[in-house]
């Protein structure tokens, strides 16, 4: 098997995550889908690292994880405070800016 299959898998997972973001209304699930996309990218980075024979790809994946952690912390805090004030975690309900 050619290791390039890992890349195809990463692409597939990324697309699934993106479609999930588009079709789910629950903000928490949307967040999970974003995480899935980030993980797919990480897989691609790791595979590229193997391909080029250096560790820079893994470093980038590492940083991605850190950023994802920060993003999850803030994002979940936002979801909690929105739920507290609006009693709903649906992204469709947050439409105050619309005319």
């Amino acid at each position: 098997m050619n290791p390039v299959n890992y890349l195809y898998l990463a692409a597939l997972l990324f697309t699934i995550g993106a479609v999930g973001v588009l079709i789910r209304r629950n903000a928490i699930v949307v967040f999970m889908c974003v995480e899935l996309m980030l993980n797919a990218c990480n897989l691609a980075f790791v595979t590229f690292s193997r391909m080029h024979g250096n560790l820079d790809g893994q470093i980038v994946a590492f940083f991605t994880m850190v950023v994802a952690a920060a993003e999850v912390v803030v994002g979940l805090a936002i979801i909690v405070s929105v739920f507290r004030s609006r009693h709903s975690a649906s992204v469709d309900d947050a439409g105050l800016m619309k005319l």
Binding site: V21, L22, R25, V91, D92, A94, G95, M97, K98, L99
Partner: peptide, 10 residues
């Protein structure tokens, strides 16, 4: 501009 964030995401 329907106000749905998911539409914008599309």
């Amino acid at each position: 501009q329907n106000g749905y964030v998911r539409s914008y995401a599309v």
